[in-house]
Simulated scan of single mutants.
Amino acid sequence: MRRSVLAPLLAGALALSVTAPAAAEEAAPIGGVNVVIGGVAFGDFTYPVEAGRRITVQRHVLDPGEIVTWKGPSTVVAMHGNEDGLLQNYPNCNSVQNWRPYPAYYVARSKDAGTLRGVTHNPSSVTIEFYTVQSEAIGVPQSDGQLHREPTSPQAGDILAGEEPNPGGIGDPITAANGCPTGVEGETTELASAVMDSSAGIDLTDHTQIVVYRHQVPAGFSSGWHSPYWPTLVVPVAGQLDVSHGCNDGSAYPVGKGFRAEGPLLIRSSGAAEYLSITWNIQNGFPIDLPFYLPEPPPTSCPETALPL
């Protein structure tokens, strides 16, 4: 079975250089960082995050004709950047949705919605690599009003995804199907997984960007006080992160324990560490090759914590 590695950066207007935020030398919570995958939200939806429930990021590789079979309740956002490839997702065996490159597709799988089981199929002639962010919390399916429709004028996400064959037309992204396809199961690799420590549903607006970043930080890392500019979930991959929101508090986040990064906060690591961050609702067209943070002043009782260790 052949496997390919795809460049996951968004193309065109989304693949621009980024200017470092002011005072980056005092607030640089980036470390070594690269984009894993990014996509443009396809319609409005609320991504559910619940305390005690797991968030998992997976990489899937499907050769032509291969499938991924989804089992059990969950909420999934899926993204891929293969310009030559098309996936077909069956939320159940009575309906199908085409997954094109660059949009980020939302699927709420539950018994009540009739989507407890489903299949994603690669009908293309090329291998497709795609990524999913999966929550054990059960989301609400998109309503008819939340579903993406072709607009009356082109927008960046539509141009990138080739979604303007009939400008001004109305298109239903979900159509009827006569059963789910069968085939060999493709390759699935877990990149990171963690139980979240708090509940924080994230409201997504159509055409905003979602990006998964991979961070590698050295021993003795100190981020400086900062706030993420957009909602961000952190899922450790290796080592341990020590997170403070004040001078006299702190929480340890080893592998398997995740959190929503809400500022002002300070992230440190006594040893080398690695983690994924998932940033939601980035303004469409904003360059995403580096995450964006706002430097914050340290608490007045501990100004020395602004300095790197």
Results as ranks from 00 to 15, higher is better:
residue 235 V to A: 07
residue 275 Y to L: 11
residue 297 P to M: 06
residue 285 G to S: 11
residue 251 S to K: 11
residue 273 A to E: 07
residue 209 Q to D: 14
residue 232 T to K: 04
residue 291 P to G: 06
residue 241 L to T: 03
residue 198 S to N: 06
residue 209 Q to H: 03
residue 229 Y to N: 03
residue 228 P to D: 14
residue 204 L to D: 03
residue 197 D to C: 03
residue 266 L to Y: 05
residue 230 W to S: 09
residue 242 D to W: 08
residue 247 C to K: 04
residue 240 Q to N: 14
residue 234 V to S: 14
residue 277 S to N: 02
residue 244 S to Q: 15
residue 237 V to F: 01
residue 274 E to W: 01
residue 282 I to R: 06
residue 256 G to S: 13
residue 294 L to C: 00
residue 222 S to Y: 09
residue 206 D to H: 11
residue 271 G to V: 00
residue 217 V to R: 02
residue 283 Q to G: 10
residue 295 P to I: 04
residue 239 G to C: 04
residue 251 S to P: 00
residue 272 A to P: 01
residue 222 S to P: 00
residue 203 D to P: 05
residue 234 V to Q: 13
residue 286 F to A: 12
residue 279 T to C: 05
residue 241 L to Y: 06
residue 208 T to G: 03
residue 231 P to M: 07
residue 255 V to E: 08
residue 294 L to A: 11
residue 204 L to N: 11
residue 240 Q to F: 00
residue 226 H to R: 05
residue 270 S to R: 15
residue 294 L to V: 15
residue 276 L to R: 07
residue 242 D to L: 08
residue 297 P to I: 09
residue 254 P to D: 08
residue 196 M to V: 00
residue 230 W to L: 10
residue 267 I to S: 15
residue 289 D to S: 10
residue 216 Q to H: 11
residue 234 V to T: 12
residue 252 A to F: 00
residue 270 S to F: 09
residue 236 P to W: 08
residue 219 A to M: 07
residue 213 Y to C: 15
residue 247 C to L: 10
residue 205 T to A: 08
residue 242 D to H: 10
residue 275 Y to V: 06
residue 212 V to P: 07
residue 252 A to W: 00
residue 211 V to K: 01
residue 262 E to Q: 15
residue 230 W to C: 03
residue 283 Q to A: 14
residue 224 G to V: 06
residue 212 V to F: 04
residue 267 I to N: 12
residue 243 V to K: 03
residue 245 H to C: 02
residue 298 P to E: 03
residue 203 D to E: 13
residue 217 V to L: 05
residue 250 G to E: 09
residue 216 Q to D: 12
residue 201 G to Y: 07
residue 281 N to I: 00
residue 296 E to P: 04
residue 291 P to M: 02
residue 286 F to E: 13
residue 246 G to Q: 08
residue 269 S to V: 02
residue 295 P to H: 08
residue 197 D to Q: 12
residue 265 L to S: 05
residue 258 G to I: 10
residue 220 G to T: 12
residue 257 K to W: 04
residue 217 V to A: 04
residue 222 S to M: 06
residue 231 P to N: 11
residue 196 M to D: 02
residue 209 Q to S: 14
residue 280 W to T: 03
residue 281 N to S: 14
residue 207 H to A: 11
residue 222 S to L: 02
residue 204 L to Q: 09
residue 220 G to R: 11
residue 211 V to Y: 00
residue 220 G to S: 12
residue 269 S to G: 09
residue 257 K to D: 02
residue 206 D to I: 09
residue 199 S to G: 13
residue 225 W to Y: 10
residue 252 A to V: 08
residue 289 D to G: 00
residue 275 Y to K: 01
residue 197 D to P: 02
residue 295 P to W: 04
residue 253 Y to G: 01
residue 276 L to C: 12
residue 252 A to H: 09
residue 210 I to K: 02
